[in-house]
Simulated assay, not measured.
Amino acid sequence: PTTHGVLQTTAVVCAGGLAGIVPHVARGRVRGGDRGPDPDHLARRVLTVGFAALCFQPLYNAGALTGPLGTGAPYVLFLLLVLVLTGLCDAVLAALLLRARTSYPYGPLLRDELRALLGIGSAVCATGVVMALGVAAAGLWALPVLAVPLLLTQVSYRRYAAVRTVNRQTIASLARATEIAGCTPPGHARRVAALATAVGRELGLGGSELTVLEYAALMHDIGQLSLVDPVPGGATAPLPAEDQRRIALLGGEVVRMTGVPAAVAQVVERQADPYREQPLPARIVRTVNAYDDLAGEGAGAALEALETLRLGTARDHHPEVVAGLARVLARDGLPGVTSVPTG
């Protein structure tokens, strides 16, 4: 039997989180550092634990759990149910926070968070159940013993994240090869990747789909390195369809040699196909690339470029992608656009 309630449980978690932040504060990594904690993340964790404690502690203290359920399988199933509800609560809060920061559509963000629950989230929840049962059987000594797998998981996750960061930096550096060679304007690949990712989120893509889209957008012009005569200004949108398709196929061959996922090469290869035959990532790369080729520095040029894309929806660009691009530009204020007709 226990006497502590929801407030004490939440206070202990809050104190532990604040204690964990101290080393990062000393190193100046609270916000913006490579590995520093996020205060919003800590607040979310405290709220999530408070939710779990509210679902469990009053019933346990009153004896309403161990009495009817006992300490066998029904009790374990109840703990799993509480953890599933807690995971859902955490996913909802995480998606809300990211929505507030980025203004991305809430549905895809929540879907990404729910997908994460099936991976590391399920492992953490299972460890929580084992900890609760282990402490009841072996006392508080079970906590440090059972925390070791979590620490090892955290170290592995940090290494995995570092590898992914290095991989993305390598792809971004390779994408700059077209700029260094004078085939494309400076910053073209980066702008297309950032805008294509935003449009992908607007249209409901998430998780690995966004990663493939970003990589393909970064490397969409890599095929120009195989050309004998560079494209004037690096703009491929005004080229004939045959030339665009040849550059796309050459780019796909180069991308396959870099070791990135095959889906990235497929998107690069198909960006010049008729849009009705393209997958959604290829449609997005094609439209955003055309926008960046056509848009200038001012809002007027950006509006003119969007109007050109809208007029091309019958043959060259998917109407939904053009509409999504217009919404992103209007909402985020990219290239000076504050109000965009979606036609």
Rank of each mutant, 00 (worst) to 15 (best):
A282N: 05
L110D: 08
L306D: 06
C89K: 07
H188T: 04
V13Q: 10
T165N: 11
A11N: 08
G223R: 01
L250W: 03
Q271M: 05
T313S: 07
S103Y: 10
V82S: 10
R31A: 15
V321I: 06
G324P: 09
E113C: 11
A326H: 02
I171E: 00
L213P: 00
H220I: 08
V264I: 09
T287D: 03
F78N: 00
T10F: 03
E277K: 15
G233R: 10
L294N: 02
G87D: 04
G36C: 15
G333H: 12
P335Y: 07
R158W: 12
R164F: 07
V130P: 01
G28S: 14
A193V: 07
Q278R: 15
R111H: 06
N289L: 07
A138S: 14
G204V: 01
P149G: 10
P37G: 12
I180M: 01
G251N: 07
I120C: 08
R286G: 11
L325M: 12
C55W: 03
A116C: 06
V82Q: 07
H318R: 14
G336L: 05
A189Q: 04
A196Q: 02
P240Q: 09
A126E: 07
R270K: 14
R35K: 12
T153E: 12
A123G: 08
R176G: 02
L96P: 00
G139M: 14
Q244M: 08
L65E: 14
V148A: 05
D293Q: 03
T287I: 02
P232T: 10
T2W: 06
A272P: 02
G251S: 00
D273E: 15
P68M: 07
T338I: 10
T308G: 03
P68F: 06
R310K: 06
G50E: 01
L205D: 00
H4I: 04
P261K: 02
P341N: 05
F51W: 14
A95T: 06
D90G: 05
P240V: 05
M219F: 11
G336E: 06
T211Y: 12
L195M: 09
A26H: 03
T258G: 07
P341H: 13
D38L: 15
A323I: 11
E209A: 15
M219W: 11
C55H: 09
R310W: 12
V82G: 02
L174A: 12
G312T: 02
T10C: 15
M131C: 13
S103V: 10
A216P: 02
G182P: 01
D40K: 13
G63S: 04
V288L: 01
L210Q: 02
R27H: 09
A137F: 08
L306I: 14
T102W: 09
S173C: 04
L65M: 13
S173W: 04
A217K: 09
L309W: 00
F56K: 06
P185S: 02
D243Y: 04
C89W: 15
Q57D: 09
F78L: 08
I21K: 08
L59W: 06
D273T: 13
V228A: 15
L218F: 00
P186A: 14
C125A: 14
